[in-house]
Amino acid sequence: MEWFNFHFSDFAFSFLSILFEGIPFLLLGAVIAGFVDVFVPARWLTQVLPKNPTAAVFLSGLLGIIFPMCECGSVIVIRRFLTKGLPVSSAVAYMLAAPIVSPIVAISTFAAFRGQNPWMMTSMRLLIGYGVAVGAALIVQRLPLEKVLARALYRSLPPRDGGAGPEAAIDDGGAGVATRARRRKGRKLRIAAVPQGEEGIGTKLLRVARSTTPDFLDVTLFFVIGAAVAALFNTAIDQSVILPLASNTVLATLSMMGLASLLALCSSTDAFIAATFVAFPFTAKLAFLVFGPLVDVKLFFLYGLVFRRRFIVLLSIGLFVAVALICLRMNVLDM
């Protein structure tokens, strides 16, 4: 095969360089998530959200700025927050937006695209990511919860409509009697969960380490696989072969979105891999960076912890179409 020439030392060199570049960012995200897990109480989040459900969704989409979380971590966090009364639409907005709208992702994207229009790439990534996440959350707001949430999670939620149970509930975004009842219930649950003795700072830091480690290792596992695929692509494949694909904007955009899903990279490091696809147009790399943190192979399984399978499939298709259309439209506008 003339287009495929594998040489292990080249592969190893490229593979290690991707790891060395991405690991510090991945670790930073995991450490921050660990501190959030231990030091930020869940009730704080529900208290600061506005009562207006739509406003709550818009604000939730920005929470990643103060609670930066990678996509794997955000699934774990919203599951925790949902059982403590966070409206589902707000949870979806946070879950989808936080892996993109965060300072860590902004910094890493800017750093990775140094020399490749970094301001434009970073700002468009955050803007489109936020817009798509909020749009999806506003649609979820109008859906019955039993059609959205995984059965076990739905049953575990505090009763809505003044204690009438979760049946036929529509996500109310935090407004009205239902939410107040839920919050009261949630408060009781939280009080019951408070540890008996005050923890010292040493114990808390140890908990941060214990929370950080599995997050870091779990995501690094997928990052290692992604880095290997990227290194193979970058060293073994004759780049002139893929030029026809890269020169067709529609094919390039769709293929990069598909690749983002397959590579399942962490949003804090994916820009370093996207930046290496120098032959591909700007919008194709942008589509890679926006769609990857929203839907990928590992997220498809992780979302199953929170949502129904049918909802996940529809959500994935909707996000794919939305991101593709926006990015292709941008290309038409020559942005």
Binding site: N5, D10, A12, F13, S14, N234, T235, D238
Partner: peptide, 15 residues
Amino acid sequence: HSQDGFGMTAIENRG
């Protein structure tokens, strides 16, 4: 197995 640079194969593949 990593060396501190690319060999001919990778350079030719990149062009």
